[in-house]
Design a protein around this nucleic acid. Structure first.
Lengths: 206, 206
DNA sequence: TAATTACACTACACAGTGTAGTTTATCCTC
DNA sequence: GAGGATAAACTACACTGTGTAGTGTAATTA
């Protein structure tokens, strides 16, 4: 028999998707320990047995979800240093990019699941953070290039990029992760970004 | 018969202390859910029944520990704004004070237990954070005073103080809380504080 | 035919309790 | 001050109840 519709995936894939979705929701609000497989199954509208047919254990399901969220994060389009463009514009572009990540539901879910709702398994947490830092180092690269071009005066680009990040994350990351606060509205984002860049340049620009 | 020694507390107080100490350790590394009363009793060198003789439930024990850690945090000696002293010195003093808090084992334990190792019970987490902010607002008060005295140009002292905090906490708080990193050594603390103050003043000083 | 389901079931960890016996501190008497 | 009675606290241990990870199976559905 043919599929009902070309857009509808196979039943088993739909079920699988529903399980993952339900598991993300549950893990996110309740954490790893407190979430039960029965609850996930119920929320997914699926029998518990089906959950176990797709995922051999809670542990594996959790790991899969981390992968799933990771893959769902939009790839960061890096900004390369342009000697002829104003530093301020380029930095604002870099921060806009960072805000795009911080506003990404998948990213926030991932961070919350991985950090706030558990830190269960330190090994995996460290791995996660390492991969996040990897993805985030565009800023450091840019600052290093700007310093090499004589436009920024710093001997420690990594330190400087952490400072700039601190100026952002104190508003738009940590409160959201640890206190489940809502993401910043556009106006506040603008204020935070511009103020951060201006302060940064007031100190580091040549 | 008299007590064996004037310094040794009564047996029951020693037991109680051992339980609290053990519970802090367990909750800190394992979080609320994963920690069992049996483990706490074992670690404290006390029978499980004794734990329940002192604390009627795990929930209550946890709450008591939050109180205990809270009380153990050194009271913050606030810095008042002096119109005649250099801003830089006063800010460095304020940040030194902040670092004293961030280096306080009890404070870090509390924050970790309350935030990283659980965020179990949002109501209590929010209460905790509210009280922490209360204790931390000395910086905002100082900035407001400096702005009123015409020494700092900002219309939003709260925002400015969050920025300065972000410059510090990105190095000396969040990594310790979420990744259990070691506190900063003295040299790094100095670098972080001075760099933060200089950047802050480069932007806000009149 | 392959996946899903209901359901019954195992095994285990854990919060919390009840009890009977032992230890520790205090107090009273000599 | 020594010594024994007394009360309070501690301990071992057995036990209840519950929640939950994970499995096996026979029937149902896509």
């Amino acid at each position: 028999m043919a599929r009902h519709s070309p857009t509808a995936p196979r039943l088993t894939d739909r079920k699988r998707g529903a399980i993952i979705e339900a598991a993300i929701d549950e893990f996110r609000v309740a954490g790893y320990e407190t979430t039960s497989m029965d609850r996930i199954a119920a929320r997914a509208g699926v029998s518990k047995r089906t959950v176990y047919n797709h995922f051999p254990s809670k542990e594996v399901l959790f790991a899969q979800i981390l992968r799933h969220l990771w893959d769902a994060i939009a790839g960061s389009d890096t900004v390369v240093f342009h000697a002829d463009r104003p530093l301020r514009d380029q930095l604002l572009e870099l921060l806009a990019q960072k805000f795009r990540l911080l506003n990404d539901e998948a990213f926030v879910s991932l961070a919350r699941v991985a950090i706030a709702a558990g830190i269960h398994s330190p090994e995996r947490a460290l791995d996660m953070v390492a991969r996040m830092n990897e993805r985030e180092e565009g800023l450091t690269v840019w600052i290093r290039a700007a310093a090499a071009a004589g436009r920024l005066k710093t001997e420690d680009p990594l330190f400087a990029s952490h400072q700039l990040e601190g100026l952002i994350k104190g508003f738009a990351f940590w409160p959201q992760i640890t206190l489940a606060q809502a993401p910043l509205d556009a106006a506040t984002q603008k204020k935070v970004a511009e103020s951060a860049v201006d302060m940064f340049l007031a100190y580091y620009a040549c």
